[in-house]
């Protein structure tokens, strides 16, 4: 019951003194802003954003509880803040600066509340301020969360792009592909390696693929198993996979780990593997 009253009082203030509130807020924002962030966003743009958020807040307050921003009635507000947070993130604002946009509404809004209800019921006023503070805190935290998510998405996309860049498939000869691997082979990278090698086998109809691991510093049990899986998948598709460039220490590790390479063909160097591949395809390496 008290909650509803509190919401009504806040709404009344927001609606009755909207223009003044907006002006005060923009002023407060410009006051806290650094020179750098001021240059990133124009005055009319900032004013429009403030206006929009005040409108959205009033609408949401009319239809939903103050303390439940997960409620569907808060969806438009959340959506607006999410978009704002993303665009500010792109513009180069820090998460703090974006959160401050929401938090800076506190001061002018509290001032207006105080002016409207001072001397009326101090306890009620305190409650209003408390509830409103909690709401704005939650909304500010939400912008931070969105900011974080956007960052994570960027990182994930870049990781994927990097993985693709680091796994070139080279056509050595008609029917012979080679994939020189450089760097550490972890689970997700091996997955990408495996997929692009197999796809290239289909695309070029190559019966032989050479996986060269000269540039792979160490091989652990998991990596060795991944390599074996690649060889097995290649075979299932009707092609053959030769592993080349196994360095002496890695050969020792593989034996120590007890990984059974089975009938996998291994060659010391890419050149040896290439020679074998040519021979398998019926070419004479001496002439080729």
């Amino acid at each position: 019951m008290r909650m509803a009253v509190s919401t009504n009082r806040i709404l009344k203030v927001m609606e009755s003194s909207q223009i003044q509130l907006l002006a005060d807020w923009v002023k407060a924002l410009r006051g806290t802003a650094t020179a750098r962030s001021s240059s990133l966003i124009s005055d009319p743009e900032l004013q429009a954003q403030c206006q929009e958020l005040i409108t959205l807040l009033s609408t949401a307050l009319r239809n939903a509880r103050l303390d439940a921003i997960d409620d569907p009635a808060w969806e438009p507000t959340r959506e607006y803040l999410a978009g704002l947070s993303r665009s500010r993130g792109r513009q180069g604002f820090s998460p703090t600066e974006t959160a401050m946009f929401v938090l800076s509404l506190k001061e002018p809004l509290f001032a207006h509340l105080r002016r409207a209800f001072a001397g009326d019921n101090e306890v009620q006023l305190l409650l209003d301020v408390w509830e409103l503070g909690k709401l704005l805190d939650m909304l500010a935290l939400y912008t931070t969360e969105v900011h974080q998510q956007a960052r994570e998405e960027v990182i994930r996309r870049q990781t994927e792009e990097m993985l693709e860049l680091s796994t070139p498939v080279i056509r050595l000869w008609d029917g012979i592909l080679a994939m020189p691997l450089i760097g550490t082979l972890d689970s997700s990278r091996t997955q990408v390696v495996m997929e692009s090698l197999l796809e290239q086998i289909v695309a070029t109809r190559s019966p032989i693929a050479i996986l060269d691991i000269t540039g792979v510093p160490t091989v652990d049990t998991l990596t060795a198993q991944h390599l074996l899986k690649t060889v097995a998948a290649t075979r299932l598709m009707g092609a053959e996979c030769i592993i080349s460039g196994i360095r002496p220490q890695i050969a020792q590790t593989i034996v120590h780990l007890g990984v059974e390479l089975g009938d996998v063909i291994t060659k010391a160097s890419l050149a040896d593997a290439f020679r074998l591949a040519l021979k398998k395809l019926g070419h004479n390496p001496a002439q080729a």
């Binding site: 495996m194 997929e195 197999l198 289909v202 899986k229 598709m237 009707g238």
Partner: peptide
Amino acid sequence: GIQPAVAI
């Protein structure tokens, strides 16, 4: 004709 994804 086993597809790469199927083979994996």
